[in-house]
Design a protein around this nucleic acid. Sequence first.
DNA 1: TGCCCCTGTCAGCCTTTTCTGACAGGTATG
DNA 2: CATACCTGTCAGAAAAGGCTGACAGGGGCA
Lengths: 113, 113
Amino acid sequence: MPEVPPAAPTGDELLKVLSALGNPHRMRIVAALLERRNYVSALAREIGISRPLLHMHLQRLEAAGLVVGTLELAEDGKAMKYFDVTPFFYELTPRIIARAAATLTEAEKEEAK
Amino acid sequence: MPEVPPAAPTGDELLKVLSALGNPHRMRIVAALLERRNYVSALAREIGISRPLLHMHLQRLEAAGLVVGTLELAEDGKAMKYFDVTPFFYELTPRIIARAAATLTEAEKEEAK
DNA sequence: TGCCCCTGTCAGCCTTTTCTGACAGGTATG
DNA sequence: CATACCTGTCAGAAAAGGCTGACAGGGGCA
């Protein structure tokens, strides 16, 4: 039973996914994590960007649901945050974009909760 | 014989598409044009944004190959630029992103030609 | 000629995103 | 205790995007 989005993502969801993926660094991050899961510091060295920057990009990807991070304790007691790519699947067609656009929240910087 | 991209877009192409679609206004523009083709001024009024702004968004969409604009002469001689949505189709999965990321041009602000 | 609608572009402003360097806390090891 | 590697966050600079108002040219119509 695949957990992937069937066919009709909400506008806001799709928007997050698209803007998250629409960045060279973040595309490379997904690529790197797909080969093997990794923790922040090592991944930063591998890709060649600063750690705070990678941290920011990972946040964006995680907020879009494209990767997930789990804080794990290594044997030596060090806390390391490992990231994995989620098996996402989205289709992009004019019709799908149109359906998503119709459900866009847009305005209101929601503070309700 | 469908003209749509089969399965493996280049990194730069996919990047353009994703960043073009990752914007509320541009999603709405695609939605509006899918219902019916339209010219710039009318579309700007319909969506409720300024004409120069719409012009900019349309450029971005056209550069990504998602819409096409054709300058047409109305019967009364007026020049109007009509835009149509192209029947694009992209799939988004970790593997596809990874393949695209591998072909990213990135650096060099190409001036070669 | 004056008015209306069409097209385009440009300077400038404001907001968001991207990015760096520094700081703080944690647990080992020499 | 100093070092090394892990985590996170924050202020502020730099760059990219988004947006407006004004300007310029074109044609039709009264």
